[in-house]
Design a protein around this nucleic acid. Structure first.
Length: 103
DNA sequence: ATGGTGACTTGGC
DNA sequence: TGCCAAGCCACCA
């Protein structure tokens, strides 16, 4: 019957990421039941409404960097929010020191 | 249907 | 550390 759409589960995973921590796209996808859905996660965040209160800014790629283009508004917004949560952001890269979210 | 693209990941050099 | 190739999934022309 009605199964919960993958997007819904991705939202739940996002909401579970602790403040001050970040997770990779692959990590989120894996926890949402999409072991190879890194791209799906990215596409889902891309489609998020502007009024969504989900911490999408806590999601970065496996290289520990922000995947958005450095000249886009989303990049600046994500960087600013991460810094407000106490994370050190150097350029497009997050200074990793126990940054990875642990479920 | 087919090919190209993207807020990805991993392995190799 | 950084770039490249292959794999993966969904969307678009």
């Amino acid at each position: 019957m009605n199964e919960v759409p993958a997007e819904q589960r991705i939202y739940a995973v996002l909401a579970a990421i602790l403040c001050g921590s970040v997770a990779t796209y692959g990590q989120v996808g894996k926890l949402a039941g999409l072991p190879r859905g890194g791209r799906l996660v990215g596409r889902t965040l891309r489609n998020l409404p502007a009024d969504s209160s989900l911490p999408w800014h806590r999601v970065i790629n496996a290289s520990g960097k922000i995947s958005l283009p450095a000249d886009s508004g989303g990049f600046k917004r994500q960087k600013a929010r991460l810094q407000e949560e106490g994370l050190l952001v150097n350029g497009n890269r997050i200074s990793l020191r126990q940054y990875q979210w642990q479920p």
